[in-house]
Amino acid sequence: MQIYLPIAEMSVNAPLVLGLGALVGMLSGLFGVGGGFLITPLLIFTGIPPAVAVATGANQLVASAFSGVLTHWRRRAVDVKMGLVLLAGGLLGSTFGVQLFAALRAAGQVELMVALSYVVFLGTVGAIMLVESLGALRRSGAAAPAPSRPRRGSTWLQALPLKMRFRESKLYASAIPPFVVGVGVGVLAALMGVGGGFIMVPAMIYLLGMPTSVVVGTSLFQILFLTAWTTMLHAVQNQTVDAMLAVLLIFSGAVGAQVGARLGIGLRGEQLRILLAVIVLAVCARMAVDLVATPAEPFSLAPAG
């Protein structure tokens, strides 16, 4: 069964897109990640133009982030003040990112930029995650308790000026580092169609020294507003948000996420993280191969502006 996408101006196989959405939703429910870093490349692999994939991916993330924030909000696991500082940086970053995206699109380099960002960031994060969770698994196998990590983060970062009190994070620290993290995540959100949780969560724990209990809720809070803003910018500037595609992904993703959350109950944290790291590295490898392998067709067409 084919369905016509009015913005992408092509018809796609509806069960395929629904299946992709459900699969990514399931993984995001399983691992507690947004899944933007999976859905965008998968859409590109199925032939949807990268510009549409990135912008529509952002729209889909609004739904999954909102559903996640609500859950964490009820558990009071959202540091709103920290979220707002991250968001301030994020809005700046994504505004810049969307301009950059439009310029790259005009120059015919969007595919390259998207692929390079994926290879660099997914490769780095996937490798770190794999090494660390393998280490954790080995430690737990030796029955030795993992050494408790000093949670305070880098002190010189927190000692920068513009100090603020973040009550839920139990921190009195400079607002500059979270703002800068927000900017970086905002640029990535615009360029890659991701929420940026996979960068932000480690940054919040290791750089900002936030307690893990509020990290996920706070990052989702920031991602919700950031992806909504990115959707707005892409729709206005590049006109590449395909609402039809977004609806297909949102609903299949929501169903998949519930399935994933149930599946995840029986599995151990380290095993899950190793699995996630392997998936991340596989996507990264596929993108890398496309970059270096001799293409079957070196020519490509684009509407001339």
């Binding site: 729209n59 889909q60 609004v62 739904a63 999954s64 982030a65 909102f66 559903s67 609500l70 859950t71 909504a228 959707t231 707005m232 729709a235 948000v241 609402a243 977004a246 609806v247 949102i250 609903f251 929501a254 996420a257 519930q258």
Partner: peptide, 13 residues
């Protein structure tokens, strides 16, 4: 588009 996403997110939750 954003409203649809928010509605779907709320519904899912």
């Amino acid at each position: 588009s954003i409203a649809i996403a928010l509605g779907a997110g709320l519904l899912a939750s």
